[in-house]
């Protein structure tokens, strides 16, 4: 059987995408599609594991055993999300080792939001409520993404995210029902996280480098601005409900549009932090690389043990 001509393979790929079916790892796919997916899934995976750090910061200082157990479970979930996603990326022909190397050498990015610090316990509330809330807004449409392994990983992840957001909101509710100082702490956390959270959806549609191709390939289903609007519309009433003020003087319900109008995030800040000049960039990378290097002996010992057992089994069999 001669290999189908490139034209035919391209046609077949286009047909699968147009029919809203899934591309699977062994299928032929355009090189651009593969590269684009590797970049996106890898960045997503890196974000999950770097995202463990701002919350890991509070594990030993959670205010009760219940809160500690919850936070531990959430941080463990984020590690799991990273692993699901690395697995999905690996089906595209890149290795785990290469992926981690790209992260550690700064050639691939992780979500900018994790370059911000978590000075108070209220940040655990704000992160769960806002950051996981924004992640859910982004991730739900990805469950229908055209690449099968990515879509399936997203289904698994979305099932777990909802608890993340709820536990965060519950922390905010508790603080808002507490003392004046506790409520102020919740408000300050909202002030810190609101704008960086809006930036999680990426640059405005007019400037987004990868958006259009991704929409054509049905990797993305909504634009950055559409998702940002969705998040604002869902979140503002929740802030109202618990008596917190969203730190945006331009925020107002627009009856005509049926949406909230809101101010423009500081895109210069986004560029600055992405370029490495955020409050915690250096710390996050140092912690990540440190964990990788400090764990090397464990991985090596496990391999040595596996080899020894295999050799002994072979000896007995001989």
């Amino acid at each position: 059987m001669p290999a189908p001509a490139s034209e035919t393979r391209q046609n077949r790929f286009d047909r699968v995408i147009a029919a809203d079916q899934r591309i699977e790892p062994d299928d032929w796919m355009p090189e651009d599609y593969r590269k684009n997916l590797i970049r996106q899934i890898a960045q997503h995976a890196h974000s999950e594991i770097i995202g463990m750090q701002p919350e890991g910061n509070w594990l030993t200082r959670a205010p009760s055993l219940r809160r500690k157990s919850i936070l531990l479970a959430k941080v463990q979930d984020e590690a799991g999300h990273g692993l699901y996603l690395y697995g999905a990326a690996e089906t595209l022909g890149i290795t785990r080792h290469e992926l981690l190397d790209l992260l550690h050498t700064g050639r691939q990015k992780y979500a900018n939001i994790f370059n911000y610090p978590t000075p108070t316990w209220a940040d655990m509330g704000a992160i769960g409520w806002l950051v996981d809330g924004a992640a859910i807004t982004n991730q739900i449409p990805l469950c229908r993404c055209s690449f099968g392994p990515y879509a399936r990983a997203m289904v698994r992840i979305c099932k777990e995210e909802s608890f993340h957001q709820r536990q965060g909101f519950e922390i905010m509710v508790t603080l808002c029902n507490g003392t004046v100082e506790q409520k102020a702490m919740a408000q300050e956390a909202l002030n810190r996280w609101w704008w960086p959270t809006l930036m999680m959806f990426g640059p405005p549609d007019t400037e987004s480098a990868h958006s259009q191709k991704s929409m054509q390939w049905k990797i993305k289903r909504f634009t950055n601005d559409e998702l940002r609007q969705k998040f604002v519309d869902a979140t503002v009433p929740q802030a109202d409900l618990i008596g917190l003020t969203v730190p945006d003087p331009e925020l107002a319900w627009n009856d005509e549009r049926g949406h909230y109008d809101f101010g423009e995030p500081d895109w210069d800040e986004l560029r600055r932090v992405v370029a490495g000049d955020g409050p915690c960039n250096a710390e996050r990378m140092a912690t990540r690389k440190g964990a990788h290097d400090d764990g090397a002996w464990v991985r090596e010992a496990a391999v040595a043990h596996a080899e020894k057992v295999a050799a002994r089994t072979a000896e007995i069999a001989a």
Binding site: L83, Y84, G87, E90, R96, R152, A153, R156, R299, A302, V303, H305, A306, V309, A310
Partner: peptide, 11 residues
């Protein structure tokens, strides 16, 4: 369900 990395079956 998906995949994992491990040096042997037990892990």
């Amino acid at each position: 369900a998906g995949s994992v990395h491990a040096p042997d079956a037990e892990i």
